[in-house]
């Protein structure tokens, strides 16, 4: 290409460094606050370099939690993890089975099933809050892991992604497995699922983050502290007057909520990008 002046070479770096700073600054502040005492945070302006209270604050956040709430971050980490894993694994299993049926089997209600799944795209939790809450409460699933996970386990995007992939699998493989006397489920378990591991990994990254970051749903159905996820806990700790909030504990908890999904994205960046851009098609 043409323009190679010094100015043109430096300019993109200037913009990108600015952007990275805008992205990192708020997180740096939260980290700083999580290593300071509450008095230091409340003394405006708060220092913007880390202090010496890292271990102390994180230990308290993890083992005790903030004084105005009483649920420890350890419990909430566990709940967030169970919810994220439950949603990710549940979605993948349920969607794999459904996609397998829709692609490889000829049955009467095939089109009906396909369209039913498709329509769920148009019904996010946000638009059916109250009635879904009522169903969960009628089923006695308030304050349970099943209540947190089950309604989130349906995913039209996962079904579409797996369907797309299954359609590209040569049918001769399925036919050959039949001639060899394998049952359809053996074909699924031993051949099809292992072949699908790349899309499965991509879906896992996306759905784990989706599950970890759910907010409205746990807000509705968890009223007991033992079932709070990290995000709900953070919201609860921030209620009330500013001076009564234990900012250093809240900020340590915020870091704990932020790190696991961030690690997943950074470590599995390739699968993550593939998963995101593939579901578009």
């Amino acid at each position: 290409m043409t323009e190679h002046s010094r100015f043109r070479r430096v300019l993109p770096h200037v913009f990108l460094i600015l952007a990275v700073m805008v992205i990192l600054f708020p997180i740096w502040l939260v980290f700083t606050a999580s290593t300071r005492t509450n008095a230091e945070i409340l003394s405006a302006p708060m220092p913007i370099s880390p202090g010496p209270h890292f271990l102390e604050n994180y230990r308290r956040a993890i083992l005790e939690g903030s004084a105005n709430m009483g649920a420890s971050a350890l419990t909430m980490l566990k709940n967030s993890f169970i919810m994220a894993m439950g949603i990710a694994v549940g979605k993948i299993v349920v969607s794999l089975l459904a996609a397998y049926a829709i692609v490889f089997f000829d049955f009467k209600l095939r089109a009906f099933c396909f369209w039913s799944i498709f329509i769920t795209l148009m019904l996010p939790v946000e638009v059916r809050i109250m009635p879904t809450y009522k169903v969960i409460s009628d089923l006695g699933l308030l304050n349970t892991y099943a209540g947190l996970i089950l309604p989130m386990v349906v995913s039209a995007t996962a079904v579409f992604l797996f369907r797309q992939f299954f359609l590209s699998v040569p049918r001769e493989i399925a036919e050959a497995s039949q001639i060899d006397g394998a049952h359809a489920m053996q074909f699924f378990r031993r051949i099809l699922v292992p072949m699908t591991r790349t899309p499965i990994a991509a879906m896992f990254v996306i759905q784990f983050i989706y599950g970890w970051n759910q907010y409205l749903w746990p807000l509705l159905i968890t009223t007991k502290q033992e079932y709070y996820t990290l995000l709900i806990g953070i919201n609860r700790m921030l209620q009330g007057a500013d001076v009564l909030i234990e900012w250093q504990i809240v900020m340590a908890t915020t870091m704990l909520a932020l790190i696991p999904p961030a690690l997943v994205v950074v470590v599995m960046q390739k699968q993550f990008i593939a998963g995101m851009t593939d579901t578009e098609k």
Binding site: A19, V20, N213, Y215, L231, I234, T254, L258, P261
Partner: peptide, 12 residues
């Protein structure tokens, strides 16, 4: 650096 904030929950 640009991609990872996708992991940050909207609440966060």
């Amino acid at each position: 650096m640009m991609i990872w904030p996708y992991a940050v929950a909207t609440l966060i």
